[in-house]
Nucleic acid binder design. Structure first.
Lengths: 345, 345
DNA sequence: ACTAACTGTGAGAGCGCTCTCACAAGTCAT
DNA sequence: ATGACTTGTGAGAGCGCTCTCACAGTTAGT
């Protein structure tokens, strides 16, 4: 039942293979009567075309790959990536594509995965999460001339097609919002400094302070690594500097930092206000609900797929880029909902 | 550079296609000298075999699919699935397999995905997460005679190969642990009742109570749906029944329930002790660290892949099953670490 | 030394599909 | 009625690989 071929159906109906193929692919020039008979035979037998044969003949597979390099080690501990994956999966469903997941866990994985993502015939295109600037996988993939879209701005954006969120603007908005609440000693907990996300968010933070005439105090800048624990540790150092507000570059770090603040016996937002980044579900699970920057993660994934389809179909010639907007979600941690909020100003 | 074929390499080296194929596949009967020359040509040109052609010729693709049905809607909000996916991805890496992800988001997705997961859709085998007993995808997949392993015991386990955790024993251990701490009014927050996981965990809970001669009080059993918010709501009802301990069938629900307890002004574990299930990272991020049942999620995924490989290679004839053990992780929420813990006894 | 076995290589028939061509039959304007 | 299209179908050459066979050359067994 599963080993049927086009030829079998053709024989059954009494037409040539070509005609069955036309019906299967919805091509024109098949008489309604014949089309009906073929369709019936296909339905009755439960025939499915062989994807490998089709891929070989058409030179494309309908499969795209999602590569998450080793440097994205936090892969599934940070809710960001699961959501991104989900968005991409939905994007694939929308366009009748199959998604293959390449999760690099170690150096050896890297060696095993590389041939599999270069192998012609299997993958029509690649979505690659950017991470460290010198990630081996990214370097090597460039050499395969396979259509690919980078998720997140790479360090050398020249000639690369990528999709990103407007991190500078988002961080600007977040910081600006804190300034508008009257805070002046605004600290920031950044991600690791070897990522463009971190640099961009830091830039937005600087811009907002500069725009308000607030001098940047390096003591108020602490480096984390996007994880909860790193936020906790960064905040422990930061507390001594007596900030009145903190912009954390991820919700996870904000949550960790808030934990440190609680343990120090300080109140949120009265003593220290908070704003995070991402708007993952965790943001609403904390005692004080987190004001944050919402990233359109699902839409981001869907858009990424569409961008990839575009370059698969039309070539990579002019490098394209998509920059998506974010949204400030005001909850309780920033003090905006407090009666008489601006007491810090 | 990417459009090379076996034939090209053969011509380059001055041998027949067959010989190059032998080298590529590490087959014997190639003289060391020729092998070396071929290898050099492959390296120099950057040749990679075409996967579609190979799949067509060998009748297998080296790709397995992971199907997460629509009923697993909580997909990426619950950290369980990301971790499981990660385990499976590593299992695939270990065995040089490619993983395709089929995330069913809607009824329409279902229709689109079904033809793609039929065997001739290029997959060697399928890992299918079980959910509702009447999930369309699972029903239909059975009709394709494609090797598959179910993740979690299905309702009709007859003839199905599956892998699961020993939920009955795990829930028994959890409940038993609470009993051992001296608690007697032990409530439970279950998952949705249309899943075997829920039924099994409930059975373990019953068994432990029965074994200790504690009568089951139906008022102490509340149904949730594995999510944080459902745990919160279930606990709100439960509080009126004055339990002295709660066994929640997932960490997420435990966290939600603990939130409800805090809001009611009660202390954990002094007033109400808690034990969860899963041991996801969240369990250690709560104010009171959660005692829980650790599932070997990563190992589970890896084992699942190995089981699938087994039935791909050796057939599904005798249905196989693997049941994995869990581990009780004692932290603060169960009161075992309290000085003078057994005050409830 | 003569058959038997092994080794290294070439030949070529598929795997199941797509797609261009060729062609018969029907449609239509002039 | 004649040439020019259009429509429906069949033919068959690939797509790039694997794998069984055949066979020449070498090694071994008695």
């Amino acid at each position: 039942m599963a080993e049927l071929t086009l030829e079998d159906i053709a024989k059954l109906v009494g037409v040539h293979r070509s005609t069955v193929s036309r019906v299967v692919n919805g091509a024109p020039n098949v008489s309604p009567e014949v089309r009906k008979r073929v369709l019936k035979a296909i339905h009755d037998t439960g025939y499915h075309p062989n994807a490998a044969a089709r891929s070989l003949a058409t030179q494309h597979s309908g499969i795209i790959g999602l590569v998450l390099p080793q440097s994205v080690g936090s892969f599934f501990s940070d809710p960001y990536f699961p959501l991104l994956t989900q968005g991409i999966a939905f994007g694939c469903n929308n366009h009748d594509l199959t998604l293959s997941l390449f999760l690099v866990g170690s150096k050896e994985d890297e060696e095993k995965i590389l041939p599999r993502i270069s192998r012609r015939g299997m993958l029509d295109g690649l979505l690659i999460q950017t991470g460290h600037p010198d990630d081996l996988i990214i370097q090597r993939v460039k050499k395969f001339s396979i259509p690919s879209v980078l998720l997140g701005r790479p360090f050398d954006s020249e000639g690369n097609t990528y999709i990103d969120v407007d991190n500078v603007q988002a961080a600007f908005n977040a910081t600006r919002h804190l300034i508008d609440q009257g805070y002046r000693r605004i600290a920031t907990i950044t991600g690791n400094h070897d990522s463009t996300v971190t640099l961009d968010r830091l830039e937005g933070y600087h811009k907002a302070l500069g725009g308000a005439g607030i001098p940047v105090d390096e003591a108020l800048v602490a480096e984390g690594s996007f994880t909860e624990i790193s936020g906790y540790q960064a905040m422990q150092k930061l507390i001594a500097t007596r900030p009145d507000a903190v912009f954390a570059a991820s919700d996870s770090m904000a949550v960790g930092a808030m934990r440190a603040v609680h343990e120090a016996g300080l109140r949120i937002p009265e003593d220290i206000a908070f704003i995070g980044f991402d708007d993952v579900p965790l943001a609403t699970l904390t005692k004080i609900k987190l004001t944050t920057i919402r990233q359109p993660i699902l839409k981001f994934g869907i858009k990424a797929v569409e961008l990839l389809i575009d370059i698969i179909e039309n070539g990579t010639k002019p490098a394209r880029r998509i920059i998506m907007d974010t949204e400030l979600v005001i909850r309780d941690s920033c003090g905006a909902n407090l009666i008489g909020a601006n007491q810090n100003g």
